[in-house]
Computed example of a mutant assay.
Amino acid sequence: MCANLVANYKKRLTSVIANMGFQYWCQGQRTERPQTSQPSAPLGVTVTALPHASLTVEPHWSPIYTGETVSLRCGLSGGYTDWQYHWYKDGKRIEDAQPAGHTVTGDKLSITAVSVSDGGKYHCEGQRADRPLSSQRSDPVSLSVSGVRPRPFLTVSPLGQIFEGDSVTLRCEVTARPTATVSVSPKRPWYPGETLTLRCQISGSLSG
């Protein structure tokens, strides 16, 4: 009398690498006769990368000035739908902090009346109920917020007394606030008795 024996064995694969293909097959062994089974037919396994998130900022210029409205939009590749979007600032999820003036609508995060504290590195990711359950996080995007707006300067040409019938040119020029940076020479390490040179450099379009 013969008996049919079906054995199940499961192996979990961890840390698989995307965009790589594998061929698997299995074979059973035991101490009694028959000691081995025939090998199974090969099974091909292809690992696909998770959809990649991309983050864009509107307006595109930098810096953003306090009081303006900023929109961040999260795009996801792969053609999948029903995504729920999550937003992060400096590695911390924004929804957990619930900051004032932040509104999430679908794939867009809007920040109204932006402040200097809103500056930082942002990224986003998507999650869904079906496979794939999540996306890759987007590359970080830096948001720079300035509390000092550029100052306009008005000039008139020609200078001095202007007479009836003269041509007059008024020019309005907007310049960025100059910034100062300090450097030291020689560079670290510094040792007792050495002479250090500090240099202050002013950058910007103003002169004088």
Rank of each mutant, 00 (worst) to 15 (best):
Q38D: 09
D82L: 13
C2L: 14
T36G: 08
A41R: 14
P158F: 08
S138V: 04
K108P: 00
R93M: 07
I94F: 02
N8I: 04
D107Q: 11
T56M: 06
S37Q: 03
N8A: 03
L143H: 11
I111N: 01
R151A: 11
E194D: 03
V174L: 07
D139R: 09
R151E: 10
T112W: 03
R131K: 14
I202L: 08
G193P: 01
V148H: 03
K89T: 05
G208H: 09
E95Q: 10
T105V: 09
S37W: 05
D130W: 12
S77M: 04
A100I: 04
P34M: 00
A113E: 04
S144N: 13
I111T: 02
K187R: 13
S134V: 12
Q84P: 03
C26L: 14
F163C: 04
V184I: 15
G204R: 02
V6K: 12
P150N: 01
S117G: 06
C124Y: 02
A7G: 03
K10H: 10
D96Q: 13
V148Y: 10
G204K: 02
P192I: 05
D96G: 08
V47P: 01
G106Q: 08
Q38M: 14
S117P: 05
T195M: 04
G119M: 01
T197K: 08
T105N: 10
Q27M: 07
P192S: 01
G193A: 00
F22T: 11
S142M: 13
G208T: 07
L133K: 14
T155F: 13
G126Y: 04
V168D: 07
T105I: 06
P99M: 03
S37N: 05
T112Q: 00
S62W: 11
L170M: 12
G79R: 01
Q84T: 15
N4Q: 15
S115L: 02
A53S: 04
G79Y: 04
T181R: 15
